[in-house]
Amino acid sequence: MDELIDILSEEESLLLQINDILRQHEEALLSKNLDGISTTVYELERLLTSFEKTEDRRRLCFLRMKSELGLSEDLSFYEFARSSGGNLVEKLFKVTEQLNQMALEVEKLKELSQFQLRYIDVMMKILNPQDSPTYDEKASIRRDSSHRFEVQS
């Protein structure tokens, strides 16, 4: 049981670091700091890999514990933690809280990225229009424009 609590503490610590890096990444994106973006992406990959390995350790530890205690193979970690109570369920809720925070940070980054991509698209259309202009060189509405006007002077 203590091993599971220690692993959950590691996960909580990693998630706190991941959330901090996500905030730094958002700041780097907003300030268009390419070095900062590169650094945060590298650090984020490292932390996520570490979290994945820690989560695998937690899963294997729980499977081993279920086997040793003769618990049902269908028993979920959440059900086990809830029935055990105490520090285990407390740590699990802290990890869950950090996961929820991470989801919010990722959603903010997703919205920011979508906004920036739309901005780039608008700028590209302004700087390099693909459609012919609505008016010709005489300031008359073109017949081939997407409008239904057919006025010519």
Rank of each mutant, 00 (worst) to 15 (best):
E55W: 03
T49A: 05
L71A: 08
V41T: 08
E55V: 00
L60D: 06
M65Q: 13
F62I: 03
S67M: 10
R46Q: 04
E55C: 02
L63G: 00
S72W: 01
E55S: 10
T54D: 04
R64S: 13
S50W: 12
K66R: 14
L47I: 12
R58M: 10
R64V: 03
T54P: 06
L63F: 11
G70W: 00
R64E: 07
F51K: 01
R64K: 14
E73H: 01
S72K: 09
Y42T: 14
E55H: 04
M65F: 15
L48P: 05
C61W: 00
K53E: 11
L60T: 12
K53I: 11
F62S: 03
L69F: 05
F51I: 02
E52V: 09
R57M: 15
S67N: 07
L44F: 05
K66Y: 07
L69R: 14
C61V: 04
L48N: 14
L71V: 06
S72F: 00
M65K: 15
S50N: 10
D56S: 10
L47Y: 09
G70D: 07
K53S: 15
L69A: 15
F62R: 07
F62C: 04
L60A: 03
E43V: 04
S72P: 00
L71K: 13
R46K: 06
L48Y: 04
M65I: 13
